[in-house]
């Protein structure tokens, strides 16, 4: 902040480079807070990856057993819970039976939340044990996937309620990951979608469809797997918003629809904050050029 001491009064632009970063923090805070307070909403247009994910879940025959892995924690829930909610509603509406699990310890409660706020809210007729099962978390990261690829009951002795898998009709016949029609990993990093590709998809490439929801940070890592190893992929909160639109278009709900619209709500602040980011980068460069030309003139 004090680089310009004693060399005359620098121009505004040159001084800009040394601005207290708390002003930038404030600008960022406002750019996100204001759109939320003003409830800014913008239209979304589903892209090919969101469509591929939607189609993958649609293409599996009605009544199939799908596995949804909650491989994230509350730190990424802002991006991923909207995808999880929409996916759970989609699978249930399509008539699929859902098995929930988590590779991240904190993911288990996020799965519970999706069950409570989406599955039981919009599909109250579903019965535990025959229509859905919550297996919960197991320690071991990719070791869990690798073991499940050949022997699910060896990894999961019971569900989260302590009921043996053999007593739950939905999972009693599940021997390995190949017995699922579709696996979805809602993934925030390691372990997550990449490990599902490496340890489950590779072991049984044709056995099931594999889709994922990914945080913005992890997308790059997963892109090479799409569309061959990953049949669908939801990219960051935009992917969530696009997918929500597709799901809502085909399977609308009558009340509490906001539970399936969180992704679109969070797209409002994106526009303003992204413009701020672009503005900041441009301003930073202008300040650099201004500072340099001033330095050159001296």
């Amino acid at each position: 902040m004090h680089e310009h001491n004693g060399s005359g009064s620098p121009s505004f632009l040159a001084r800009l480079g040394g601005i207290d970063r708390r002003w930038i923090f404030l600008a960022m805070g406002l750019s996100i807070a204001l759109p939320i307070l003003l409830k800014l909403r913008f239209p979304e247009y589903p892209g090919p990856m969101a469509k591929a994910t939607f189609d993958a879940i649609e293409s599996v025959p009605e009544g199939s057993t799908v596995l949804v892995a909650f491989d994230y924690d509350p730190a990424s829930a802002a991006e991923l819970q909207p995808m999880a909610n929409a996916m759970v509603h989609h699978c249930a509406s399509r008539g699929h039976k859902i098995v929930f699990m988590a590779l991240w310890p904190l993911g288990r409660q996020l799965a519970d939340k999706a069950i409570e706020e989406v599955l039981l809210e919009f599909h109250p007729g579903l019965r535990y044990g025959t229509d859905y099962v919550q297996l919960g978390y197991q320690a071991g990261n990719e070791g869990v996937i690798k073991l499940m690829a050949t022997n699910v009951p060896e990894q999961y002795k019971t569900d989260t309620k302590g009921t043996p898998l053999a007593s739950l009709p939905l999972v009693a016949q599940i021997k390995s990951t190949a017995d699922f029609a579709l696996i979805a990993s809602i993934s925030a990093g390691y372990p997550g979608a990449k490990e599902w590709v490496q340890f489950a998809e590779s072991a049984n490439p044709e056995a099931f469809k594999l889709v994922c929801g990914s945080t913005g940070v992890q997308v790059s890592q997963l892109l090479p797997y799409y569309p061959k190893q990953l049949d669908g992929m939801l990219v960051a909160v935009k992917g969530a918003a696009e997918y929500e639109m597709l799901v809502e278009g085909k399977y609308p709900v009558e009340k509490n629809a906001e539970r399936l619209g969180q992704g679109r709500v969070r797209m409002g602040p994106q526009l303003v904050a992204h413009m701020l980011m672009i503005g900041l980068i441009i301003l930073g460069n202008i300040a650099m050029v201004a500072g340099r030309s001033r330095g050159g003139a001296r």
């Binding site: 939320i36 913005g216 909160v237 602040p269």
Partner: peptide, 9 residues
């Protein structure tokens, strides 16, 4: 960037 903004939102 998109991810980080979502978390703050």
């Amino acid at each position: 960037v998109m991810g980080r903004i979502t978390l703050l939102a």
